[in-house]
Design a protein around this nucleic acid. Structure first.
Lengths: 198, 198
DNA sequence: CAGTCCTTTCAAAATTGTCTGAAAGTTGAG
DNA sequence: CTCAACTTTCAGACAATTTTGAAAGGACTG
């Protein structure tokens, strides 16, 4: 933590303002951190990106460590990870010895990287496993196996739809969920195999 | 684990088939478990739902504990949680003492519950915090504070768009991401406040 | 080319999250 | 009411993840 936080009453106005700014930045960082955590990344990655995003000027690692009360090692690792995700960039500031960082501000770049490297991989791997399990079930003749196969086919069609929705999204920059219509709409259309049981 | 898994070679054909079925079920359960984990829930919740989903007949807790090698306590907690999320239902089988469970098969029901209770809450809470931070920044006059406010306003517009997209989704059962157009498309449209800085 | 400043790595510590199993609680039958 | 069958709860064990800080590794400077 910053070594200045003990004597609030005697802090000069300029520093008080600075603290207000930092307070607001941290509030925002925590909010975005929660979003990022919800998306399955570490919270600190979101907090770090936010601090950089809110500063139009590049910041050095020490400044980030200071503002977020994080160890130097933690900052280094977080920055590397953010850079791999294409969410933060390293810049060189003329005449400065240390490195500076800025936030990527192109949201599409960030989203497409995550979707293509993470979501797509997951969905593909899941689709493959469902296919494999279906193959195991197909030769079985018990009532239970047939029921399981019936439902495995539904899961497979969902996975396939998701897979192509992701591909379309990446290609066109537009989210297209129409393929899920039969699932998301009140199931009424015939022959989709996904009607309600009831 | 089931007490039968030691002597594969001497297992009668009927049991062998049963094992193949269970193997396929577990493969599917793990696949869906990964999806659910990726969505921020415990993996075991996804595995449990899947076992129920693949069985058209209701299953008792002991059967689930057995198939998933989970303790009675774990099963009980997982089933309660799944029930709260409206993803599993408790049914009474005539003449049976213990309780049985079935998977909810209406995907819309499951999705809308999660979206309305989890995503919506998060997005609203984030939007509120961004608003609050913006209020802290507004009176500040430093260059840094102004830059931060400028970007906080962009974050706010994203949060607001997300919030209304979720509301529309819940009301109409259709995903509508058109509000994100200015972000997702190559940013070119005027007056949205979310153009690229470049 | 030695010294300083800065960054990265990584093992250990701290933290956080999950699971177990025994005890308490509940339900229904006799 | 009492027992047996089943379920829930929860404290502690265990497991996974995250963070720290010290040491090693560059790289620029004088």
């Amino acid at each position: 933590m910053a070594p200045s936080s003990t004597a609030a009453a005697t802090v000069p106005p300029v520093f008080a303002k600075r603290d207000e700014l930092q307070q607001a930045v941290l509030l925002l960082a925590d909010a975005i951190g929660d979003v990022i955590e919800h998306w399955g990344f570490r919270k600190v990655l979101g907090r770090l990106w936010t601090v950089l995003y809110l500063s139009e000027d590049p910041l050095p690692a020490t400044e980030l460590a200071d503002r977020l009360s994080l160890s130097s090692g933690g900052i280094s690792m977080a920055l590397s990870e953010l850079q791999e995700w294409g969410v933060v960039k390293r810049v060189w500031v003329p005449g400065e010895r240390r490195e500076f960082f800025i936030a990527e501000t192109d949201f599409w770049k960030m989203i497409s990287k995550v979707v293509s490297e993470r979501e797509r991989f997951l969905v593909t791997s899941v689709r493959e496993r469902i296919t494999q399990a279906s193959a195991l079930l197909r030769p079985l003749s018990s009532k239970e196996a047939k029921a399981a196969l019936r439902r495995a086919r539904i899961l497979l069609s969902i996975a396939q739809t998701a897979e192509s929705a992701i591909a379309t999204f990446l290609a066109s920059r537009r989210a297209d969920f129409s393929g899920f219509g039969a699932l998301i709409q009140i199931p009424r259309s015939p022959s989709t195999g996904v009607e309600r049981k009831s």
